[in-house]
Design a protein around this nucleic acid. Sequence first.
RNA 1: GUGGACGUAGCUCAGCUGGUAGAGUCCCGGAUUGUGAUUCCGGCUGUCGCGGGUUCGAAUCCCGUCGUCCACCCCA
Length: 430
Amino acid sequence: MSPQLQAVRGMNDVLPAEIGAWQHLERVLGGLLHDYGYEELRVPVVEHTELFKRSIGEYTDIVEKEMYTFEDSGGDSLTLRPEATAGIARAAISNGLLRGARLKLWTAGPMFRHERPQAGRFRQFHQFSVEAIGFPGPDVDAELIALGARLWQRLGVTRVRLVLNSLGTSAARAQYRGALQTYFQAHEAALDADSRRRLQGNPLRILDSKNPALRALIEGAPVLTDYLDEESRQHFAALRTMLDGLGVTYTINPRLVRGLDYYSRTVFEWISDALGAQDAVCSGGRYDGLISQLGGEATPAVGFALGIERVVELIRQAGTAGQSRPPAVYVIANGALAEPRALQLAEQLREALPGQGVQMNLGGGSFKTQFRRADRSGACLALILGDAELDRGMVALKPLRREAGQSECPLPDLPARVQKMLQEESWTST
RNA sequence: GUGGACGUAGCUCAGCUGGUAGAGUCCCGGAUUGUGAUUCCGGCUGUCGCGGGUUCGAAUCCCGUCGUCCACCCCA
């Protein structure tokens, strides 16, 4: 195969065999978001590069080395969105939605990051992004998390658990960051190369290190929780009380930090042990400072992003994915007169039995071939029209899902007869 | 960006220490001149990822490159 016919690295096709799980997730989560009062909005896939630099943070990995950035023919620097929150915040500002805002919004679609692909990580991947804007209290945080818990329940996905932390205000975090730097600088000799590099840029990331050699050192480090400002402490305590009241179980991980700079106070992550190294399935948190930072009226907000490919994998493992639905009837036609007539019959059946699925044999083939296709289509009934039947003004019908002989019925009675036979075969549509 | 494993038919794979490719499956036809399983018979498809090197000779050895998978990093 010529190289130019390959898909771009890390950008995958979703084939019919896998689309059932995607549609299942989209239906269930779409319904759930409606139940919780969230409304869909759609924002562009491309934004000004500046938006992401100012929101995600100029010195994050995403902005420094993972964005698809290009100059358009007008000379503007544009970027394929690496995440959706920034675009939603921008949309709320530029459409004047913020005055006294109480917005509950969601969007879904492709995101782009130039990373090395691996299990659960792709260069074009898909997210649901859910945002509550204009709600300051911990009650939204709790409700958003409850929404997640209900989603796993409705999907029949069990291997996920919730991890929770509070980052405090940016001032509190800066203070903590200083303390962390002092601590790790004192033990610099014990650090690995990666961590030494993070020491200046982002010492919080050292806490996330998977290097077992650093475990003891990290456990001895100052804990973010001890540096929380009083208001954040109360916010977090209230959230925990609400989650306890809702029966949502969680563990607190004081070392949970997010890779995007705009988070403050509540951060959470639903993680799974069934996905390999990329275990975060859905994560988010509060970003009270983002909107004012982007030039909008100061508005608190909280939200999460859910990785569709990763959840689809969990659905696949749980075996709760929707199977593709076979047609109810497969129409077999043989003969110069019968073929055009069969096309008409198929249309008549589609008119009379909407939603049932009537598949017409296309492209000819022997009777044997057509029957094999009928069988493999998974259809409940084969409808047979040859010139012999046509001469008698009849059609033959044969159940395919059990051993049974075929019967004939007069052409005008066909729709009623098919409906009756589908009932007798206890064939369920939907 | 770094490391490891792997690229052979549409799909799953075999091919030992170099002698220019094979099985299963799928698809098509027939046995059954109009009936889906199974069985039997027959048929179709390969620039052995790509480029270069070593050799009389390379799917096999070497180098490069592209891609896939997994991990690091990072994150959904």
